[in-house]
C-alpha cells in the first residue's frame, strides 16, 4: 500500500503545479492574444464613403506583450530547470528571484 500513498501524495502536487503552469501559462497567452485583437480596434467596416478602419488601441498592445513576456520568461525558467537538473543543480525560489544551487 505504501506505493499508493506515495503516488497519491506526488499526484496532487503534480496536479496543482500543472494547473498553475501547464494551464495558467497558456491561459495568460490566450489573454495576450485577446488583448492584441482588442488593440486593433476591431474589424474594418464598409460604409457609404469607403472602408472605415477603426482607431487602434495602443494599451491593448502593451498588455498583450506584457502577457507574452511573462509566458516566455516562464518557459525560459522551465528550460533552465531542465538544464540545471541535468548538471546536478536545482532552482530555488527562496530569494523570490530564482537562483541556481547545488542539489
Amino acid at each position: 500500500m505504501h506505493n499508493v500513498t506515495f503516488a497519491l501524495d506526488s499526484a496532487w502536487r503534480v496536479l496543482l503545479t500543472c494547473l498553475i503552469l501547464g494551464a495558467g501559462l497558456p491561459i495568460l497567452f490566450a489573454a495576450g492574444i485577446r488583448a492584441l485583437a482588442w488593440s486593433s480596434g476591431g474589424e474594418p467596416t464598409v460604409t457609404e464613403t469607403g472602408v472605415a478602419v477603426p482607431a487602434p488601441r495602443p494599451a491593448g498592445k502593451v498588455l498583450a506583450y506584457a502577457c507574452f513576456t511573462v509566458v516566455v520568461l516562464a518557459v525560459l525558467l522551465g528550460i533552465t530547470f531542465i538544464v540545471a537538473s541535468g548538471f546536478g543543480k536545482a532552482i530555488t525560489f527562496d530569494h523570490v528571484i530564482p537562483t541556481l544551487i547545488d542539489k
Binding site: C18, L21, G78
Partner: peptide
C-alpha cells in the same frame, strides 16, 4: 494544441522534479 502541449510539458517536468 497549445493547451495540450503545455499540459504535457508541465506534467513531464513537474513529475521528473518530484521523482514520479
Amino acid at each position: 494544441g497549445m493547451a495540450a502541449q503545455s499540459a504535457s510539458a508541465a506534467v513531464i517536468l513537474a513529475s521528473s522534479h518530484l521523482g514520479f
